[in-house]
Design a protein around this nucleic acid. Structure first.
Lengths: 179, 179
DNA sequence: CCACAATGGAACACCGATGTTCCAGAAAAG
DNA sequence: CTTTTCTGGAACATCGGTGTTCCATTGTGG
């Protein structure tokens, strides 16, 4: 039934996120294996590789939106909102690496997201928690790059997720706060 | 003669840096074309793809070392030294993207480089220009991720190299300075 | 000018990933 | 239990990148 199909489809997507985030050009067979599914079945759900990648972008965008909602970026000062946003994004884990390796990142998030983010930063300019010298897009870049740095740091330095998150928040705040 | 050979070899390496930094899995034919060289010739200098990649790592390490020397990281405060290091690294351009896409980055730079860097950061701890809460490796991560962010920012936001560098330096300094 | 080195194009075999088809077995729905 | 759906393995054709060989051409150095 459609229930089974959804479950299989989701299993494939999850596996794809895990595998392709580490190696964007991994063969589809690896994805299928990771999803505990035959390669045939994978092709049944996503006829071509591009179809899988497209669905993956959708999925990523979805999770990104959810994270943004959880962060309640409308509350508090701009900097505080961004801090919460970083925390939520951090928990996305593999999705982040995926967003990096593919060039799906910023521009592609959909206009709605960009606007919401711009509003937050603007609020930060006004309430004095974000340096007005830094353009909105640059603030965005800082966040992404620090998140990526944090995740790779976990792998390199054998550090807990918690500690990595602490460093990320510290660095982003330092980079964004007016001097 | 060996003179001609060196020139050809270098042309291939330069082209490889340019092409593979944008797309690490680009076919060798593209590299050859970019180098104005026949694919046959490329194979004559680098029999297998892995040979080219290895030589590329050498070349990158070389340029990295040169940049570090130019930065004179032994002088001034720790933060000032790191600032100059960022400037020099920034000028490496494509090499940076290459170092990112391959996993050649940090760990692989050779122990000598790591030690030199650790010394600088330590000096920063002592002279109060770098926050002692931030581990050496994390400072390293900040630098790399901000440099990468800066270069992608140039492509996205249509901003001059100079402006991107300014933002990088501003952000790194903010992230590293004790509060 | 001559000999030798270096080059690039063409043709080839090879390999791994991709996408397709077919079929038999498992699982869910009725 | 029976029917229908979903699955996964095997076999296959195809395609693009890789690495090799051969040969004719260019050009560099003596």
């Amino acid at each position: 039934m459609t229930n089974v199909r959804n479950r299989t489809r989701q299993a494939i997507l999850d596996a794809a996120i895990e595998v392709l985030s580490r190696n964007p050009s991994a063969p589809l067979g690896e994805v299928a294996t990771a999803a505990d599914v035959g390669r045939t079945t994978l092709h049944r759900y996503f006829p071509e590789r591009t179809d899988l990648v497209a669905a993956l972008k959708e999925e990523a965008k979805l999770r990104l939106d959810e994270a943004r909602l959880r962060a309640r970026i409308g509350d508090d000062t701009g900097a505080a909102a961004i801090r919460r946003l970083c925390q939520e994004y951090f928990d996305l884990g593999d999705v982040l690496s995926l967003l990096f390796h593919e060039q799906i990142a910023f521009d592609d998030e959909g206009a709605g997201d960009d606007d919401a983010f711009a509003t937050v930063v603007q609020r930060g300019y006004d309430d004095g928690s974000i340096d007005p010298e830094l353009p909105v897009t640059w603030v965005q870049n800082i966040i992404w790059s620090q998140l990526y740095a944090g995740w790779s740091y976990i792998g390199e330095a054998h550090v807990s997720r918690h500690e990595a998150l602490r460093l990320i928040l510290r660095s982003v705040e330092g980079a964004v706060t007016p001097r």
